[in-house]
């Protein structure tokens, strides 16, 4: 992690702390942050742009609550895929339109034989299950087993919280 630290200096850290709950809802939000963090307004925009450029900030925007938007079915589809094929097949699954996250993760045998995780969102469970069928067809014989774990309750959802 120390390799990542030189670019993450104290002023950047102040900006992270000041914005992790959200961007100020005032006409000149970056000026408000400048005052809060003790740096010139132009410096706030420059630092945010630099963090965007190096990927420390993925984007500045909104996170919708998918339940409130009618995407009430959220299925974590998990697949036991032949290790020899997972790089190529995982990339193809990740490009399907309904897939929002797609990762290779470790198995925990015998309880958990699955090594490919594809998160699916739909307006209802049948819509998600159609996506599952599409992935099953794409994976073909390289897939030995799969399951869909629907989320039945959000227990907690907050953004990143760094200590201050």
């Amino acid at each position: 992690m120390n390799a990542a630290l030189p670019q993450q200096d104290e002023l950047d850290r102040r900006l992270v702390l000041a914005t992790q709950a959200g961007l100020p809802l005032v006409e000149r939000p970056y000026d408000a942050l400048a005052e809060q963090c003790g740096m010139p307004a132009a410096e706030v925009q420059r630092r945010l742009a630099a963090m965007l450029a190096r990927g420390a900030i993925r984007r500045i925007g909104a996170v919708p609550n998918h339940y409130a938007l009618g995407y009430t079915a959220n299925g974590m589809s998990v697949w036991d895929v032949d290790d020899a094929c997972i790089a190529e097949l995982g990339a193809r699954v990740g490009r399907l339109p309904g897939v929002t996250h797609c990762y290779q993760r470790p198995r925990h045998l015998p309880l958990w034989p699955y090594n490919l995780f594809a998160m699916l969102h739909g307006r209802d469970r049948p819509a998600v299950l159609e996506q599952v069928a599409e992935i099953r067809a794409l994976l073909g014989p390289a897939c030995r087993a799969h399951e869909v774990l629907f989320s039945t309750r959000i227990l907690k959802k907050t953004g990143l919280r760094l200590g201050s």
């Binding site: 992270v16 914005t19 992790q20 709950a21 959200g22 961007l23 809802l25 945010l48 963090m51 990927g55 420390a56 900030i57 993925r58 984007r59 500045i60 925007g61 909104a62 996170v63 919708p64 609550n65 409130a68 938007l69 959802k157 953004g159 990143l160």
Partner: peptide
């Protein structure tokens, strides 16, 4: 409706 608005940190 929105859970968050601001920078998404990586």
């Amino acid at each position: 409706v929105l859970t968050r608005f601001g920078p998404m940190f990586q």
